[in-house]
Design a protein around this nucleic acid. Structure first.
Length: 510
RNA sequence: GCCGCGUUGGUCAAGGGGUUAAGACGCAUCCCUUUCACGGAUGAAUCACGGGUUCGAUUCCCGUACGCGGUACCA
């Protein structure tokens, strides 16, 4: 068992956008697999036909691709343990459920949804708000445990709709060692008789995970903490199916919580608080609802991943910036925090800033192109790259580069005159007019050339350089922002610089 | 209700019987810069509560409180 090859899986259900928590589960699976030279499998858990959403699977694949966390096996890549969509494996599950019935670990239940509702309504009290179908109530329901064998046989023969439920022992301790939490124990008496096979012949999650993890030789399961309560069901299934020796090791990851208040982070929180929750834009074909994702908001995938990794894990040294390779090398399950972590968009922005500053300018230019096109701007990639390099350190998101550099692409329409007018006078006006003609004849329109001419003229006119820089900035940008002024002038080029000065002077005069 | 998992500054968190209880984000002040940012410096701010155990508990044990998760023919 210790020598078993590491095989992990990410098993989402294709029902909508992939959010933060899901992506972090992907990450941890990926890190563990790579670290142990194992396999990372993607399995689509689409056993609920009613929740199927067109495009969700492709969307998930694209999210993994964006982050560079692609699976080795899956519906997209194939592999020796396919098919990797549970809907395509439908026929494989029934036999296991039947075997469990035969072995006395499960039973047929013929209760209709209405009968189940009635049972719950009848048993519901303040002390027991959600009655379970368990060892206490099952003797009173329509199932093969209570019915005579011939009655059951008859119902079955007649094709009566039925499910197969696991028969949880009345009181047995089920314990296991969670890789993150250590010893965890449950009493089976508190767990209900989960449905394993639904009336439509599809397995539920509980049966499908166990069967598929077994068939796909999964060695370690990383999943959200919300699955912890159903772990005893899964463990019993492994045991009842006779596969306990092959059972994977469990690791229940802490949840990612809302930044404010209480509860698990949801898409709604993002909408309400104005930050993304999904990895990429998601357009729900059913509701028509559109949700913005990290990618389109201008986050870099490496920053996104780094941020996700630090949400619940750290290496103990205080280091916060890690490349994917470093994470692969340093990740350790024992250092995963036990408690849930509140998501903090400010910190996410800081991570992105770190990577944005380090990012290659050509790449930033390419990422920016769609936005520029949207703004109706035409510029060469080289020009955009230079500009991105100039302003990126004052941005958190790729998309913010525009907000800090738009004046490179279009002349100011309005000016922050309040910042210049109080100190605007004839001398300054004269200075800019003269400097304009100096620039005309300037052969060396380089940063140094521009700056020197500016300073020389200022000195010769007995004026303070510092007091002239702000007006110049406002002439060129329209306001008090942007990179160092002379850099802007250089980037704009001689003609544009002069044009902007001449355009602004009368505005300042007015 | 029941079951499970948690609880170190506003947030992410290190630490783990004796520490001035790291670091990061954010915030504040200052320096740099006649824009903004970056960078630098400084600062405010934390061991949920109550019992044990111990010479000594933030750290170990037990309770309590609080939070979260689960309690579907959803995953």
């Amino acid at each position: 068992m210790e020598h078993k090859k590491v095989r992990v899986r990410f098993a989402p259900s294709p029902t909508g956008g992939l959010h933060l928590g899901g992506m972090r589960t992907v990450l941890f699976n990926y890190l563990y697999a790579r670290q142990h030279k194992g396999d990372f499998v993607l399995r689509i858990e689409d056993t609920d036909q009613t929740r199927y959403v067109a495009g969700a699977e492709e969307y998930i694949l694209e999210c993994l691709r964006w982050c560079g966390l692609e699976a080795d096996e899956g519906p997209h890549a194939g592999g020796p343990y396919g098919p990797y969509r549970q809907s395509e494996r439908k026929d494989m599950y029934r036999q296991y459920a039947e075997q469990l019935v035969k072995d006395g670990y499960a039973y047929y239940a013929f209760d209709t949804p209405e009968e189940l509702d009635a049972m719950r309504a009848r048993l519901k009290t303040d002390d027991n708000p959600s009655p379970q179908y368990n060892h206490i109530v099952r003797p009173h329901m329509r199932n093969s445990l209570r019915l005579l064998p011939e009655e059951t046989a008859q119902l079955l023969a007649a094709g009566t709709p039925h499910v197969i439920r696991i028969k949880m022992p009345a009181s047995e301790e089920v314990a296991f060692t969670d890789m993150i939490r250590g010893e965890v124990q449950f009493n089976t008496g508190t767990v209900d008789d989960k449905v394993l096979l639904k009336a439509d012949g599809m397995p539920t999650y509980h049966l499908a995970v166990v069967v598929d993890d077994y068939l796909m030789k999964i060695s370690h399961v990383f999943r959200g903490e919300e699955w912890l309560p159903s772990a005893p069901v899964h463990i019993l299934l492994w045991r009842y199916l006779g596969w306990e020796e092959q059972m994977p090791q469990w690791a229940h990851l802490p949840l990612i919580l809302r930044p404010d208040g209480n509860g698990k982070l949801s898409k709604r929180d993002g909408d309400r608080l104005g930050f993304p929750v999904y990895a990429m834009n998601w357009n729900d074909p059913r509701s028509g609802e559109f949700t913005k994702g990290f990618r389109e908001m201008g986050y870099l995938p490496e920053a996104f991943i780094n941020m996700l990794a630090m949400l619940g894990w750290n290496d103990g040294t205080g280091q916060e910036l890690f490349t994917l390779d470093e994470l692969v090398e340093k990740f350790s399950v024992s250092r995963v925090h036990h408690a849930g972590a509140r998501f903090n968009i400010e910190k996410a922005n800081w991570f992105n800033h770190q990577y944005l500053v380090k990012a290659d300018n050509r790449r930033l230019a390419q990422l920016l192109m769609p936005l520029l096109q949207e703004k109706g701007v035409q510029a060469s990639e080289e020009y955009v790259a230079n500009i991105a390099g100039m302003v990126k350190e004052r941005c958190n998101l790729v998309n913010e580069i525009w907000d800090h550099s738009f004046f490179f692409f279009q002349q100011p329409e309005t000016y922050d005159t309040a910042a210049v007018k109080p100190k605007w006078n004839a001398d300054k006006r004269q200075f800019f007019l003269e400097w304009g003609s100096v620039l005309e004849t300037l052969s060396d329109f380089s940063l140094a050339g521009i700056e020197d001419s500016f300073k020389q003229l200022a000195t010769s006119m007995n004026m303070k350089v510092g007091e002239l820089q702000l007006p110049l900035r406002i002439m060129l940008c329209g306001g008090k922002f942007g990179p160092p002024v002379f850099n802007i002038a250089e980037m704009l080029g001689k003609h544009e610089t002069i044009a902007r000065i001449m355009k602004a002077v009368p505005v300042f005069d007015a």
